[in-house]
């Protein structure tokens, strides 16, 4: 009936960008990113990764409304960095961390599988 379509939860509507950036009008080096069709899964790890960056003064995210499938990430950095730079860096780092995590997991799995063979 008036339920939103299922695909609306993951299909970015036409004419909008997946990620958009808006510079803050009052504070230098601050701005907010709007990420379409994402939720706490990405928002929270992004926030965490930004907090790990010593140049980031403030980072937070919000999900404006459960039926609006997007998140806002607000970043404020020190002068030697910029929100876009911190954002790119954070995601690149995250990507590398996940890569190494996956590798570690697979190594561990092989080790576990081989345990019975070695007579444990």
């Amino acid at each position: 009936m008036n339920a939103p379509d299922r695909y609306e939860r993951f299909v970015v509507p036409e004419g909008t960008k997946k990620v958009s950036y808006a510079q803050d009008t009052k504070i230098m080096n601050a701005g907010s990113f709007t990420i379409e069709r994402e939720d706490h899964t990405v928002g929270n790890i992004l926030r965490m990764q930004l907090h790990r960056d010593p140049n980031v003064l403030f980072a937070g995210y919000k999900l404006p409304h459960p039926l609006q499938y997007k998140i806002n990430v607000r970043v404020h950095t020190a002068t030697q960095s910029a929100p876009t730079q911190a954002y790119t860096q954070a995601i690149n780092d995250l990507d590398k961390e996940l890569e190494s995590l996956k590798e570690a997991f697979e190594n561990e799995k092989t080790r576990y599988d081989e345990m019975p063979k070695q007579g444990y």
Partner: peptide
């Protein structure tokens, strides 16, 4: 899946 998400979130900025 999470890696893909990260890539999507960055490539489209």
């Amino acid at each position: 899946n999470l890696e893909e998400k990260c890539e999507r979130v960055i490539s489209e900025l």
